[in-house]
Every structure is written in structure tokens, then in C-alpha cells.
Design a binder for these strands. Structure first.
Length: 287
DNA sequence: CGAATAATAT
DNA sequence: AATATTATTC
């Protein structure tokens, strides 16, 4: 008998146990999130953060105790953490290509938080990377992930919009930014992203207000993701901190950087997984 | 920076 | 083989 086909069908059994992570538990900590949002600093004070040559120096000045190092290798230069290994000077590794990054739920969460705190308008790869403050994470890593994240948001938004159109019932859950929640309330919606978290912000920067207002009008316009060609008032974040600038993103990393933040590159392995390995992380569930 | 596209992994 | 994830190119 031909039972060769049968064996191939069995794989889907195991694909059911990765639906949710423990985000929901750690999610409701607005308190942790808020403080960063109110980085309202005096102009003269701002200059203190303008350390041109060594950005890491600026960062360290703001992170007293938390050593944002990756778990695992403590004595090693993080360089040899990937693959084949050999001893390379701390300066050389840029030429060597690092193994593919694995976006663990934890790392993703940190990413989303960073985006949320920055506000949509300011959430660009470089800044996000800086805020995340994860050593070894490159701008390209973030850029790539951000691209996908935006695509995901767009999807969710469209679903919500479509649902609203199909169902005229005044949904109370309608969201200022994202519109009504998708009908099939995804159990594992990664994070109610940026917009919702922004509600906690006591103060929005002009750019965010601009968007907020625009969306409040029900104007479908550019939507959640695009950014106006030019900001209303504030210049888009530039390297130099100017005297007139009232609001700026967090000068350094996230204050709470988990020392045990779980992230890895392709080759690495982690012991705390109790056997059940991450088969396939679905950070961006498809509808 | 960001979209498109290539490269890898599952 | 197809699809999802990450990297690289433009």
C-alpha cells in the first residue's frame, strides 16, 4: 500500500502549541512605559546628551547599573557568539557577517515598545535601535523588522476597516488609530501596537498630535503608517540638538532593560527552553 | 530611510 | 515545494 503520503500529513499536529507567549502577562505595565514618554528636557540640558563621537558614551551615562549585555556569553566578546569562531579583534567583526537574527517574542516586544514610545512619527530604524539598546543589534536588523511590522499593522488596520464597513454596528471598541478591532479578534495579536500605548502618553509631540487629529477626523488619508512629508512645526529628529527643540525621544535606552532578554542569532542555543523548542515563531500571524 | 528583492530557513 | 523570516540592494 502506498502510505508514503500519510507521513507527510502528520506534521501539522505539533503546530498548535505556539500560539501565545507570555506577553499578556508583562504587557500591562503602563508605569514602566510612561516615564520614557515624558522626556521633556530643557534645551541646555539637552546639550549634555549631545555627545557627537561616541554615542555609546551618552548611553552609558544614562544607564547606571543595567548592563545591556546579552545573556549567555559573559566573558566572551559578543563577536564569537556566532559560528565558527575564531578570535577576532573587537574592531574587525563588522566585516564578518553575523548569523541571522532570531526575533524572539521578548526581543520583538522590546521592539514594539520602543516604537510605541517613540511615536510613529519618530520610529525609524536608527532611533529604534538606539532606544532598544540591545548590544549587537544592527540598524539593518531593525529596519528589516520594522518593514515587516508596518506591513503587519497595515494588514490589521485594513481588516478592522473592512470589518467596520461590513458591520455598521457602532463598535465601542473602535480605536482612534487602528479603527475597530478585527472581527476575528486574534488571540495572539502581538501587541496592541503603537497607538494604544500612546494613550498613556501625557504629552504628545506635535507630530503625534498631528496624526492623532488627522485620524480623529475620520479622514482615511495616509493612515497609520505614512508620515507627512514635512512636520508641521518640529523638524524631524536630527543629530544635532538645537536650542529650540522642546521634545526629544529618550536620550538613551529603555531604562528597564532585562538582563535576561532572550534573543539569539541563528547558531546559538538557549538552555531555559525546557525541551520544547521554538519551532516557528509567528510574530505576525496571518489572517 | 524605506521599498523591493534576494537569500535562507522551516 | 511552498511559505515565512531575515538580509541586502537600490
Amino acid at each position: 500500500m502506498r502510505q508514503q503520503i500519510a507521513e507527510e500529513e502528520e506534521e501539522e499536529e505539533e503546530a498548535k502549541c505556539f500560539a501565545r507567549w507570555d506577553w499578556e502577562e508583562q504587557l500591562p505595565s503602563p508605569h514602566e512605559l510612561v516615564p520614557l514618554s515624558q522626556c521633556l528636557i530643557a534645551p541646555d540640558l539637552a546639550i549634555a546628551f549631545d555627545i557627537p563621537s561616541s554615542s555609546s558614551a551618552a548611553a552609558s551615562s544614562f544607564t547606571p547599573s543595567a548592563d545591556h549585555r546579552l545573556p549567555g556569553r559573559q566573558d566572551e566578546t559578543d563577536l564569537d557568539a556566532f559560528g565558527g569562531g575564531g578570535e577576532e579583534d573587537p574592531e574587525q567583526p563588522r566585516t564578518l557577517k553575523r548569523p541571522r537574527l532570531v526575533w524572539t517574542p521578548q526581543l520583538h516586544k522590546r521592539f514594539v515598545d520602543a516604537v510605541a514610545h517613540l511615536g510613529i512619527a519618530n520610529a525609524v530604524p536608527k532611533t529604534i535601535m538606539q532606544i532598544m539598546g540591545v548590544e549587537g543589534l544592527t540598524r539593518e536588523n531593525v529596519a528589516s523588522h520594522l518593514q515587516k511590522y508596518r506591513l503587519y499593522l497595515k494588514r490589521v488596520q485594513m481588516q478592522g476597516l473592512a470589518a467596520a464597513a461590513a458591520n455598521p454596528s457602532p463598535s465601542p471598541a473602535t480605536h482612534p488609530f487602528l479603527g475597530p478591532a478585527a472581527p476575528t479578534a486574534d488571540p495572539c495579536l502581538p501587541y496592541m501596537p503603537v497607538a494604544m500605548l500612546q494613550q498613556h502618553h501625557e504629552k504628545m509631540d506635535p507630530m503625534q498630535q498631528y496624526y492623532y487629529h488627522q485620524n480623529q477626523l475620520g479622514h482615511f488619508g495616509p493612515g497609520l503608517l505614512s508620515r507627512p512629508a514635512q512636520a508641521p512645526h518640529v523638524a524631524r529628529q536630527t543629530e544635532g540638538i538645537r536650542p529650540g527643540m522642546v521634545f526629544m525621544p529618550a536620550p538613551a535606552h529603555f531604562p528597564p532593560l532585562p538582563n535576561d532578554l532572550d534573543w539569539r542569532r541563528k547558531g546559538e542555543d538557549d538552555a531555559d527552553n525546557g525541551g520544547s523548542r521554538n519551532k516557528e515563531l509567528t510574530l505576525f500571524p496571518t489572517g
